[in-house]
């Protein structure tokens, strides 16, 4: 019954989205062919579409796409594997929380672009560099997010468990971890999108392989339709990632109204 309802609303939601897409494309085409952007070198919808078709039919494009996805996914997985257990541990101990929070907050706010020069010096413009950047960007914020979730377990619930003689381990397993789950889910969702962005930035600014580098090269050679086509592909990729993670989140945190 629930799935029927959401399917119905999805069908109803689609037309407005489609209308806005068509409208945006029409405005873009109009602006680049009639005015006010007609005199600039911004490619039109048709030109971008042609470039997109050319890209999608070249095998080179898929190699680059795969490189970007690999950097994003490996970096994401490594960051989550480090940050979630670390976050749980520091969230459980007041001392660990207080002593790490400041340092983690400090690293959290450093934008990845700032450390690219240093990372390039050490690792060069490689996939490893891209992966490292992704991990560095995600790991501190995610650890803090997880720790916050663990600390947010309801005091009433924990005291109820104590009254029933349930010890620390039961409290962690049945109260603290489930309480942290919504926090972790939000962190995972934001991290997944950020991983993709950083994997692209690594190529665009740092020369790591992948679609970021494709954009960099297309720009450098003045191939604007190709630049736009690549950006378009990245946009679609971003939407797919965010949809997939939202879907997973709804299934795993079923007790929270979404």
């Amino acid at each position: 019954m629930l799935s029927n309802g959401s399917r119905a609303s999805r069908v109803r939601r689609l037309p407005p989205a489609a209308i806005s897409v068509v409208l945006a494309l029409a405005l873009w085409q109009l602006a680049t062919s009639v005015g006010p952007l007609a005199d600039l070198s911004i490619p039109s919808v048709v030109e971008t579409g042609q470039a997109l078709i050319a890209e999608l039919s070249s095998s080179e494009f898929y190699v680059r796409l795969w490189e970007t996805i690999q950097m994003a996914v490996v970096g994401f997985v490594v960051a989550m594997a480090l940050a979630i257990p670390a976050g749980i541990l520091i969230g459980l101990s007041r001392f660990a929380w207080r002593s790490t929070k400041f340092t983690f907050d400090f690293f959290k706010v450093i934008p990845p672009i700032v450390i690219i020069p240093i990372v390039i010096l050490v690792l060069g413009p490689t996939m490893q560099m891209g992966i490292f950047l992704v991990v560095f960007t995600l790991v501190f914020a995610m650890a803090i997010q997880t720790g916050l979730g663990v600390r947010d377990a309801d005091a009433v619930l924990l005291e109820t468990m104590r009254c029933y003689g349930l010890g620390t381990w039961s409290q962690i397993r049945y109260a603290r971890l489930p309480s942290a789950a919504p926090y972790i889910a939000v962190g995972v969702r934001l991290s997944a999108s950020a991983a993709l962005v950083v994997a692209i930035v690594a190529g665009l600014i740092g020369g790591a392989p992948g679609l970021g580098k494709t954009i960099l090269l297309a720009q450098a050679s003045g191939d604007d339709p190709r630049t736009f086509a690549t950006v378009f592909v990245l946009g679609v990729l971003g939407i797919l990632v965010s949809r997939a993670v939202t879907w997973l989140q709804r299934r795993s945190i079923f007790w929270m109204p979404s």
Binding site: D154, V156, L157, T160, Y174, A175, P178, A181, W255, M256
Partner: peptide
């Protein structure tokens, strides 16, 4: 609502 576990 706070003393029962919504996930169980």
């Amino acid at each position: 609502t706070r003393s029962l576990m919504p996930w169980l």
